[in-house]
């Protein structure tokens, strides 16, 4: 239930007021906008229950998109890029990568709504064989160049734009050219704890759109420029239009690779990525304001505050599944504190 309605001043409106309108969105401009975060507005997040990957996932995703007001009007004739988390994989594991059943169900949902083209793109975070990762994750079984093509974003052509976030030390960011060819990007993330970022959800998943040919592995330039800050910069400069988080089986402990499976039995969907991730964190028993990149995102590129998030579908309390955190991992310490 929506608990609070606030006037949201958009980034564009703020710039028009404060910088005279004609000024390009720059690091300075955005930093000024960040200071004026009083206008943090509401967001809607859908939680659907799915006890296994054999469940009717299409129906759950359809329901979520419907609740969020996404239908053929927004998707018919459009090109859509699904960006799963395929950081690395091992055979017969379901807790490391976004499950192919979720990817397929999402693609089918967009086809049903008249999407012209749906493709899958990922630039795995680790310097290894991308096709082998596709094989091990099970995703290569659904990839088909004629129907659901795959793009290795690590090795795509790139375009470079000014960093519109201004959080990290990077003045410009380079993105894969495929992003310029699509109308909508969907961050199709996995629900996991993360040993550097605390959690990896729809925002951290965006590291995988950044080309390894430019940023190295595991996207070292971004780590060096500030992990949380880079996550925000990517989200601010090229924000996806939708996030879908696969929490049917997630990962707890030493994520994003060496942790253990954790069944949460949910899919979380929303257009406001910080709100989606904050909801996931709460389900995982984590205070999102203790996760640095979510705390920084709050009021800057979205909302994290519970009072601003209208939950659709299941309630957080009905699906809450605390994920194990490790005391020896600094990024996990104090994440549960209110």
């Amino acid at each position: 239930m929506r608990r609070k309605q606030e006037r949201k001043l958009s980034r564009r409106e703020f710039l028009a007021l404060s910088l005279g309108g004609g000024v390009a969105l720059s690091g300075v401009g955005f930093a000024a906008w960040r200071l004026a975060r009083t206008w943090e507005g509401p967001a809607e997040v859908f939680i659907g229950r799915a006890n296994s990957y054999e469940a009717e996932l299409g129906g759950i995703i359809d329901a979520g998109l419907r609740e969020l007001g996404i239908g053929p009007k927004q998707t018919a004739g459009k090109s859509i890029l699904l960006k799963p988390n395929l950081v690395e994989s091992s055979p017969n594991t379901v807790h490391v990568c976004t499950h192919p059943a979720v990817v397929w169900a999402t693609a089918e949902a967009f086809w049903r709504m008249g999407a012209l083209k749906v493709m899958v793109g990922e630039g795995p975070g680790h310097c290894t064989d991308t096709i082998r990762t596709l094989d091990q994750s099970g995703l290569s079984a659904i990839i088909d160049v004629r129907k659901l093509p795959f793009v290795d974003l690590n090795r795509d052509e790139v375009f470079t734009v000014a960093n519109q976030g201004g959080f990290s030390t990077l003045s410009h960011l380079s993105f894969p050219a495929t992003l310029q060819k699509v109308d909508m990007v969907v961050s199709l993330a996995k629900m996991k704890t993360h040993h550097w970022a605390g959690v990896t959800l729809s925002m951290k998943n965006l590291f995988g759109i950044m080309p390894g040919n430019v940023y190295g592995w595991p996207k070292n330039v971004l780590h060096h420029a500030g992990l949380s800050q880079s996550i925000l910069d990517i989200s601010a400069t090229f924000p996806p239009q939708l996030a879908i988080v696969d929490g049917i089986v997630g990962m707890e402990g030493d994520g994003p690779i060496m942790g253990t499976p954790k069944q949460a039995g949910i899919i979380v969907i929303g257009k406001n990525l910080p709100a989606v991730d904050a909801t996931c964190a709460r389900i995982m028993g984590i205070n999102p304001l203790r996760v640095e990149h979510l705390r920084l995102a709050s009021g800057a590129i979205g909302t994290v505050r519970e009072s601003n998030i209208e939950q659709r579908g299941e309630t957080i309390s009905s699906v809450m599944t605390p994920f194990e955190l490790k005391d020896y991992i600094p990024a996990h310490r104090n994440l549960r504190k209110t």
């Binding site: 310097c127 040993h195 030493d254 060496m258 020896y328």
Partner: peptide, 13 residues
């Protein structure tokens, strides 16, 4: 090794 866990080998590396 990262945080006490030995990483997985990779065939290409």
């Amino acid at each position: 090794v990262v945080f006490g866990a030995e990483l997985d080998p990779m065939p290409d590396a």
